[in-house]
Design a protein around this nucleic acid. Sequence first.
DNA 1: AATTAATTTCAACAAACGTTGAAAGTCAAC
DNA 2: GTTGACTTTCAACGTTTGTTGAAATTAATT
Lengths: 217, 217
Amino acid sequence: MADGGSNSKVKRKDRILDAAEALFAKHGFDGVSMRKVAEEAGVDLALSSYHFGNKRGLFDAVLMRRAEVLNETRLAALERCKAEAGEGGPTVEAIINAFLEPMLAHGYQEDEGWRHYFELVAQVNSSFEWGGQLMTKYFDPLVRKFIDALKVALPNADPADLYWCYHFLSGALTLTFAHTGRIDQLSDGIAKSEDMVGAYERMVPFVAAGFRRLCDK
Amino acid sequence: MADGGSNSKVKRKDRILDAAEALFAKHGFDGVSMRKVAEEAGVDLALSSYHFGNKRGLFDAVLMRRAEVLNETRLAALERCKAEAGEGGPTVEAIINAFLEPMLAHGYQEDEGWRHYFELVAQVNSSFEWGGQLMTKYFDPLVRKFIDALKVALPNADPADLYWCYHFLSGALTLTFAHTGRIDQLSDGIAKSEDMVGAYERMVPFVAAGFRRLCDK
DNA sequence: AATTAATTTCAACAAACGTTGAAAGTCAAC
DNA sequence: GTTGACTTTCAACGTTTGTTGAAATTAATT
């Protein structure tokens, strides 16, 4: 049967996913051809269609693969910060931290696969064509749990304000992980897009302050 | 000839730009063919190449056309809020307002051309392929003037913090104007992506609070 | 070893792609 | 009404595109 325990044949399927992940991240869905994916992965052209049906199936598989892992890690971080918090539940800062920190924890420095994945998600998130449907499908069930926790931390918040605040967080987050290099040029090298730790340490208080200003009444 | 409606007096060159703008906004550079642009504009396929050289030239022309207008409007808004401010210069809120308000002022409700343009910019901004170079080219000279004004309003700010704060602003802004419809689904209709006025009124205090938290020392 | 199932390769399809040279059309100025 | 510059169309070029049926190879099961 298929994926029982053998390794060598699973390798090719994963090599295709890795190659597609890197290429989609750089050039988007329509900027990548099945032939380039096959060439980059070192496999035959037809193999991607065999494993994933068609190009769109390959795209979905790339997005799904790490979404599940990220969602689990984020959920664990949320549960942990709830457990560590006192009676009134975690603070805004702690909740936002639980949402952001897993992205760094996933070996961002070493594992270029995750880096490519976040670049791809950034592109999808801001895309009219994919943004609404795909992000909702892969991430919103978990995002709702974070927003529920924020409702406890900000009990007097207007729900509409809360959703807009998350939206701003989402935009700041995805652009930062898109790695376009724009901040390097704008700042003449003072701020470096490679410095994800520095970005993370600034994003948490920045976003938390925004939440409090709008929702802490 | 009297304006009978479909046969407009608008030049073919502008019809091509309008059609390309709408299509690039929805599907990105590689998701649009020259044939689709020609069909949508109601002109011959070869005409786009004649006017703009090639596909990339058309893309650049679309981006440049409104960038110049937006930059002028933003610069005027910045000068006005400087003039209206007292001795110490405008506040953080006033500066951010001068950056955001022109996007609403450009007939966002009526003029779908501007809406398409902002969707396109959102996509470009988060794109690894285009984000760094194109956004820098078209917008950063003006952005630097806004950051200079922010340096006056936040005299003790670390420059790196300031650039990161602008980066977060840029991400929140472009995602909001990308109109992916995600916030509608996430909030079950409580927050509407069509409500640009509501988004604008929330974004200014949200972002200003973030700036102050990191840069007001 | 024989048989069945899963994987990988090969070759080719028809459709769509960006670009371009040359012909045809338009318009203003003389 | 002829000239000349600019605009628009036509037709076609050589590539590249996603997909697929059939053959070949490898792995698993009997």
